[in-house]
Amino acid sequence: MNNTPIKTHIIDAGYTLAGILFCGFALKSFLVPNSFFDGGVTGISLLIHELYHVNIAYVIIIANIPFILMGAFQVNKTFALRTLAAIIGLALCLHFLPATQITSDKLLVSIFGGVFMGIGIGLAIRGGCALDGIEVLALYTGKRISFTISEIILGINIVIFLIAAIKLGLPTALYSILTYYTASRMINFVIEGLEEYTGVTIISGQSEVIKERLVMKLGRGITVYKGERGFLPESFDVSHPVDIVFTVVTRLELRRLRNMIHEIDPKAFVFTSVVKEAAGGVLKRRARH
């Protein structure tokens, strides 16, 4: 009997539970006691809570319901059910978790509130759900207008922070923007991790040696393009056939790869590009999210 699905569900549940606890801690110990905000649906919930003094636990559930329903159509029903369970779990955490204000220093609140919030949301995404429905809205809207998802999210957050600036003052809004930025960077780090992939293209006259080292020594898969090198200003008519080597490595392996190439051919032309998604081939197995 294959136990992989059961193991996967347990791991996903662990990620989600950890995400809920981190988000609950960020909200109860940093953001809520200091009247700070975040972006997205969480930011809207915090703004409503601050302006109308409605229990944040109830507001977060009600504010996310439209986006959960949207997620059922835009992603799938499993995602929507997981997100609903995670949002309810976060609401329970906010309702029962004792409020302990860690600090009132605005800079510390904005940075570490964002750090813990970003860790929580990132872990929930790794668990296959969302603790903030703003990206579902952006995905839904992006199919109907010509803006990208990032532009839509940015536009919504600008409106949130403008309202916060008008109602609660510019300093609070500015510190909240710092919170949002910190959280977004942490989300990217948690999702991508230290194994964020980088594409490397190598053009060298020593391509045969480089190919052998990449495969046999580093254990990387490679793709080879047939091309020509040369075409310099002083000898434009002179060119040579060359194998253009492309491979994908993690950030931790990039320095080792560059050193190896420099050792073989100091004049090799090497350029890198960020790989947002990578699967299959000869890649290290990474956490599913």
Rank of each mutant, 00 (worst) to 15 (best):
Q74A: 11
T42S: 11
L257M: 04
G120E: 02
F112L: 08
I125A: 02
G120N: 05
V224A: 03
K28I: 06
F231C: 11
N3K: 15
I158A: 15
S184P: 04
F147H: 07
A57M: 06
A63P: 10
P98Y: 02
G128W: 01
A138G: 08
L17H: 02
L139R: 12
V32A: 06
G193A: 09
C93I: 04
M186S: 09
K106R: 10
D38C: 08
D12T: 06
I191P: 01
G142A: 13
T172Q: 09
G71D: 02
E192G: 03
G133W: 02
L21M: 12
R288P: 06
I191T: 14
A18Q: 06
R256I: 07
P233Y: 11
L139W: 08
G219R: 04
S184H: 04
T250D: 08
V59N: 03
R220A: 06
Q206S: 12
S29F: 08
L51C: 13
R144V: 10
R126T: 06
Y225W: 13
L97F: 09
I149T: 14
V224E: 10
L84D: 00
G221K: 09
R213E: 14
E50P: 05
I62V: 15
K7G: 00
A164H: 01
S104Y: 09
T247I: 10
V209P: 03
I145V: 15
T172C: 07
K77Q: 13
L178K: 04
A57C: 10
A86T: 02
D237G: 02
V215M: 14
G230I: 09
F236I: 14
G280F: 01
G128M: 05
